[in-house]
Amino acid sequence: MMETLHRYGPDLLTGFGLTLLSWALGTLLGLVLGFVIEIARRFGHNLLGYPIRAYVEFIRGTPFLVQLFVLYYGGPLIGLRLDALPAGILGLTIYGSAYFTEILRAGFDAVPLGQIEAARAIGFRNTTIVSRIMVPVMMVSALPSLVNFAIILTKETVILSMITVPEIMFQTQTMMSETFAFVTPILILALFFWGFVETISRFGRRLERRFTHYLLDRS
């Protein structure tokens, strides 16, 4: 057991690093892309609504695994040649953006119109209205869903192993096929993800308290 750990420890650690990296980048870039899409839908030309709707429906209606296959194996046919890791992160970004944009839409819809009109009346620019009024107010209602989806994304990162991204799942599978030990590694992997997810949800609750602090204090 110790020998196995010694032999595979470094690989597992780099695998863990890649899992964290692809999750963090995928979530962050997905959030940014989702935000851009939502702003485009809200402030852009009306015709933008249709392609955005088709995009969201397509991404939400198809399995992440199939999207990855299209991107990684199908991409080269249209000149999009990516290594496994960038393809995986791009896949997570695209997948996340469709869900994030819907969460942000619901969040922005919940911002009272009067507040936006008031800001406009005292001469705020659109960018200021978004950054100073809409985003902080939206965060209160949307944050739980955003955290929830970030958690879902942690679990989607294991699917990257199927396009040969050497993250933790991939490394564990390599180890299993070389040592013929199946039960312990996979149970450890399960426990590891359980802990990972619980940690993020704790952190998410802390974040929620920070954003809703002002609601609680003035009673």
């Binding site: 679990k155 989607e156 799942m169 199946f182 359980w194 997810v197």
Partner: peptide, 15 residues
Amino acid sequence: RGVPLLIQLLAAYYL
């Protein structure tokens, strides 16, 4: 809810 389905599937398959 905390463990990825892919891992659950492999666990069931091997366990």
